[in-house]
Structure formats: C-alpha cells, structure tokens
Amino acid sequence: MSSSTAGGLARQWTTWGPVVAAVDLALTWGRDLAGFGVAIAAVCLFAAVLAAVHHAEVVAHRVGEPYGSLVLAVAVTVIEVGLIVTLMAGGGEKTATYARDTVFAAVMITCNGIVGLSLLVGALRNRIAVFNAEGSGGALATVCTLATMTLVLPTFTTSHPGPEFSGAQLAFAAVASLALYGVFVAVQTVRHRDYFLPVSREGQAGAESEDDHADPPTKQEMWISLGLLVLALVAVVGLAKLISPTIEDGVESAGLPKAVVGVIIALMVLLPETLAAVRAARRDRMQTSLNLAYGSAIASIGLTIPSIALASIWLSGPLILGLGAVHMVLLVLTAVVSALTVVPGRATLLQGGVHLSIFAAFVFLSFSP
C-alpha cells in the first residue's frame, strides 16, 4: 500500500469516526444500554479518541505551538464542564462532591499520569527529556495556586460548616480562578510564547521536528479538522457518560467506593490529551507534552470552578469542594515532586517513574481508601 493510499484511508476513518460516534451518541442518549450497546459505545469512544488526536495535530500544525495544545485542552475542558453542570443539575445531594472529585482527578491524571508517561517515553527514546523550565515552571505554579485556592482552602474556612465555601468565598474563588487562567493564556500565547515552544538539545527554543518540514494544512482543512475535533470530543464525553451506569453497576457489585467511577470517567475523557502528549514525547517535543498536561489541569480548574459557581445559583443541594486529608497529602506531594522535576529543565527515567508512582498511589487509594 502506497503512502498516499494510507494517508487517504487515514483521512477517511478520522473523518467518519467522529460522525459515527456522534450518531451512536444521539441514538443511545438517555437510554439504558445493554451489554452489546455498551460494547458498541466503547468502540465508538475509542475511535473518537484517536480521531480527536489526529485532528488536534492537524490544527496544531496549522496554528503552531502553543496554540495547538491550548485548543485541545480548552475544547476538552469546555465540554467536560458542560457535562459536570448537566449531571449536577438533576443530582441533588448525591452530586455534591462531583465537581471536586472530577477536578482533583483531572489534576492527578495530568500532573502525574500524563507527565510521568510522557517523561518515561521521552527518556526511553532520547535518554534525557528536555523542556523549557521557565514555561513549565510558570504553568506548574498556576496549577498549584488554583488547586490550593479551590480544593484545599474550603476544608479550612469557617464561614460555612463543612468543607464548603460561603457564597462570597465561592464568588471570589471563581473570579480569581478565571482571572488567573486568563493571565496564563495571555502569557502562554502572546507575551512569553517562546517559553512554551519545544526546545532543542542545546536548550534553544523553537526546535523543529520532522512534522515541521511537512506542508501545513490549508485554512479549509484546518477548519474542517477543528469542527471534527469538537464533534469527536463531544462524542468522547457523551459516550463516557452513557457507559458510566455500567461502570457504576460494576463498581457497586465489586464493593468499591463510588469515587472510582469518577476516576474511570476522567481517564476516558482525558484520553485524547494523553495520546497526544505521548506522541509529542516520542517526537522529542517534551514541551508540547507538558503544555498539554499542565494546560489541561489549569483549564479544568480555571473553567470548571467559575462555571459551577455560576450554576450554583440554580442548583440545589450543597457544593463540597474541600479535599480530605489523604488527597491533600497527594496534592502536596505532587506539587513538591513536580517542582523538582521542572526546575532543571531536563528529566530522566527516574522522574517519569516517580510521577507514575504517585499516580498509581492515587488510583490505588481511590479503589482502597
């Protein structure tokens, strides 16, 4: 099979994959799926994930870094926020911790799972993973600040009983989160864009890969890919929601905590970023991987908390945001280890292994708290 034929086949399935997944979502939305329906939904979800990664790379090749990783991170987060608000709208007290659990799972998956896997892949391929300490350090500081303000402080405030913000405190956290996210995006894309570009082995920003020498897609192809990317991500999040009752039944029958459901769904929703980050690491573009990981964590907090704060005007029931002691320990450990990883601007297999160990501890303690 010639390369042009293979490329044509790739374009065909990445075009039809999101469409088929969206059709399956539309036909099955609001229904209780049986075993065969769940299997079809899972296949469509996986196809939509792979298609999303492809179209994100097409958009990234056209607009360049760090805009490409920003597009994918924001697109996934916006759709995820919509899903959270929709679920909380009819859940009452049963969904009081849904926003907290989802955001914290996203932080642990991105800062430990995606970062650790990317560092491992990059170090295995190139011995040492090289990235920009200034850009990654600023992104990490933003993640830690947002996570502390929105997930740790509610446990210690006294204006409202329990690990909850009062109305004024929630409003402040929402405005501060949105403002900090806006500052980060401005710095990443305008004022200090060079801090977020891939670096060469000599430490120079703007390192080129093999993909940079290929002709960029046309503007029409970029807009088509952007539309298919959004469609694929809608299908990913929606199908993950449809599969969640089956996951809940399996978790309940196994006697596992309900928080496990949130972890599994978050893992499925973040699959596009994970695959895109690993592919970037294999191409020696570690900065792109870190942009995806930290950018997704920042967007998850910076967009979710303001949206939940606004929706809380109409939502009934409590909104619990404060983390418990075990999760706070994992968050502090993540912050310290991440700082030690980012500061040198270079990492080895060891750093990747350490982050993956923290991620494994998070997953294990979710199953066995």
Score class of each variant (00 low, 15 high):
336 V>R: 07
113 G>K: 07
39 A>Y: 11
168 A>G: 10
316 S>F: 10
171 A>H: 05
204 Q>M: 01
10 A>L: 05
227 G>E: 00
349 L>F: 08
156 F>W: 10
300 S>F: 00
95 T>P: 00
142 T>M: 07
245 P>H: 02
161 P>S: 10
32 D>H: 15
50 L>A: 03
88 M>H: 00
296 S>T: 14
343 V>R: 14
73 A>S: 15
166 S>K: 11
289 S>K: 09
116 G>K: 15
146 L>F: 09
294 Y>C: 01
13 W>P: 03
201 R>Y: 03
190 V>C: 08
329 V>A: 15
218 T>V: 00
344 P>G: 11
148 T>S: 14
331 L>P: 00
215 D>K: 15
315 L>W: 14
151 L>I: 01
186 A>R: 11
341 T>W: 04
162 G>D: 09
128 I>M: 04
292 L>V: 13
92 G>D: 04
144 C>Y: 09
331 L>Y: 02
138 G>P: 03
289 S>P: 07
259 A>S: 11
122 G>Y: 14
86 T>C: 08
49 V>Q: 02
65 E>C: 12
349 L>G: 14
307 S>D: 04
2 S>M: 09
178 L>M: 03
177 S>Q: 12
355 H>T: 15
248 E>H: 04
90 G>M: 00
267 L>V: 07
294 Y>M: 08
361 A>H: 04
304 T>Q: 00
251 V>H: 10
10 A>R: 05
327 H>W: 00
223 W>P: 10
296 S>Q: 13
326 V>R: 03
227 G>H: 08
169 Q>C: 08
52 A>Q: 09
322 G>W: 13
293 A>L: 04
37 G>N: 03
150 T>V: 06
253 S>G: 08
201 R>N: 06
122 G>S: 14
318 P>R: 07
283 R>Y: 06
184 F>I: 10
25 L>Y: 13
155 T>W: 11
295 G>Q: 05
310 L>D: 05
4 S>A: 11
72 L>I: 13
140 L>V: 15
367 F>V: 02
347 A>R: 10
343 V>L: 05
52 A>Y: 05
201 R>M: 07
40 I>W: 14
233 L>H: 11
314 W>V: 13
16 W>N: 01
275 L>Y: 15
290 L>R: 02
81 V>D: 02
329 V>P: 05
13 W>I: 08
304 T>S: 00
260 V>T: 06
349 L>H: 10
129 A>W: 02
33 L>E: 06
344 P>H: 14
212 D>W: 13
199 V>P: 01
32 D>K: 04
23 V>C: 12
339 A>T: 09
269 V>P: 03
84 I>C: 02
158 T>I: 12
125 R>L: 01
356 L>T: 07
356 L>F: 12
162 G>N: 03
212 D>G: 08
270 L>D: 01
14 T>V: 11
220 Q>F: 14
176 A>W: 07
196 F>A: 01
226 L>P: 11
